[in-house]
Amino acid sequence: MVKVSKYLLRAVAAALMASPIYWVFVIATGYHGAAYALPPVMRPLFHWHPFLYVWTHTHWERYVLNSVFISSSTIILVVVTSAFAGYALAELKFPGNSAYFYASLGVMMLPQQALLVPQYVVMFHLHLLNTYAGLILPFAASTSGIFLFRQFFMKLPASYREIARLEGVSTLTYLRRVAVPLARPAVATTVLLTFISSWNQFQWPLIMTNSLRLQPIELALSHYMQTYQSNWRELTSAALIALLPILVVFAFTQRHIVRAVAGGETPQKE
């Protein structure tokens, strides 16, 4: 009895949580005016022509490409900087090693909303406003990435590195050929988490750009939302453009993502 009711409760909870995303499909692929039906429509029809229409009458491909470019550049940079710093923190002894470890953890403690004004000033003086670099560089290093790689590299036997040292293999070659390939789970986790946060980026481009040319998908969507108020089918179709890549990635990697979030963001108590 308890088992069955728990099973039901679980199903209800999951359905409730997923229902808003379900309704994106209902409205976007439903018949014209489905959003205004009373009682509400419950079933998606999967008519894709309104979606295709929305896709073609605005420069979504430009915004999607912007997002793809920004996300992939950020991902590459984050993996590189995290692997570098993680390796230095895990394997190398130098004055300031542990200080830097805490400094990188400390970045997470800074309240982002309180920093936007001085960040804007810094961006202004570095001529990074309205540039791709301005949307990428500030996110090119990641505390959780550094932390993940550090954890992973600490698990590698010291003799791996020592053999490389004896053979005259440079640190970069060792990282590229041995350490990073062996830290594949850390790479995968970093790529996934960076992709999600980068693709979902909204406030930063809202403040740091004002050119349509540069805007990533979420920002474009927000402008579209202001233009097409209450045109729910167009709006939800557009929302699908931002949503679908995340849904696809999540569908294939949800176990990994959930585990990464559970393990990667829990504070290390002792």
Binding site: A164, L166, V169, T173, L182
Partner: peptide, 30 residues
Amino acid sequence: HARNIGMVFQNYALYPHMTVFDNLAFGMTA
């Protein structure tokens, strides 16, 4: 690396993601 020493560790320190050939060749390719 300038000492030209061949070392054998207790845990062998073979790179698990490389074939035996690549393990043997690693130092020389580098």
